[in-house]
C-alpha cells in the first residue's frame, strides 16, 4: 500500500500534538501542587499571587517591608524586619495548606491548592 501523507497532513498532525500539549499544560499542569499563595497582612487579605511566576515581592507590614520570594512553584520569606527571622527559617513552602508567617510584622503566607492535601499543619 502506498501511503500518501502530504505536507499538509504533517502540519495538521504537528498542530494537533501542539494543541494536546497546550491542553495538558493548561488543564493538568497545575493540578497537583499549590498554584497560588494567599498573602495576609494583619489578618486581612493583601493579595493572592500565582506561584508560577518567579519574582520578589515587597510586602509592607507592621514593622517594615518583608520580602517574599517566589521560585519554581514555591514561596518563602527571603527577608523580614523581625529579629528572630523565624519566618525566614521556615524556608520554602509549596504544598496546599502550608503556612509561613512573620508574626512581628503581621504578615502570613498560605499556599492554596485546588484541593489542599491538608486542612491544617500541626507543628
Amino acid at each position: 500500500m502506498k501511503f500518501s501523507a502530504t505536507r499538509a497532513d504533517a502540519v495538521v498532525l504537528v498542530a494537533a500534538l501542539a494543541l494536546l500539549a497546550f491542553l495538558y499544560i493548561k488543564f493538568w499542569g497545575d493540578a497537583t501542587r499549590g498554584e497560588q499563595a494567599r498573602i495576609l497582612v494583619g489578618g486581612k487579605e493583601f493579595s493572592v499571587i500565582s506561584l508560577h511566576q518567579d519574582q520578589h515581592l515587597n510586602i509592607p507590614g507592621a514593622l517594615g517591608v518583608s520580602v517574599l520570594e517566589i521560585h519554581a512553584g514555591r514561596i518563602r520569606f527571603a527577608d523580614s524586619p523581625c529579629h528572630g527571622k523565624q519566618c525566614v527559617h521556615t524556608g520554602w513552602i509549596t504544598l496546599g495548606g502550608e503556612v509561613a508567617a512573620c508574626l512581628p510584622n503581621r504578615i502570613s503566607v498560605q499556599v492554596i491548592g485546588r484541593e489542599p492535601r491538608f486542612d491544617a499543619i500541626n507543628f
Partner: peptide, 28 residues
C-alpha cells in the same frame, strides 16, 4: 491556633486531614 488543632465532626464526607511538620526541616 498556630498548629494547636482541635476538630469536631468532619470535613464534609471525609475526616479532617492534618499534616505534621517535620521538626528537622520544613516539609511534612
Amino acid at each position: 491556633a498556630s498548629g494547636d488543632i482541635r476538630v469536631i465532626g468532619r470535613h464534609g464526607n471525609r475526616p479532617w486531614r492534618i499534616g505534621i511538620r517535620d521538626p528537622r526541616g520544613s516539609g511534612i
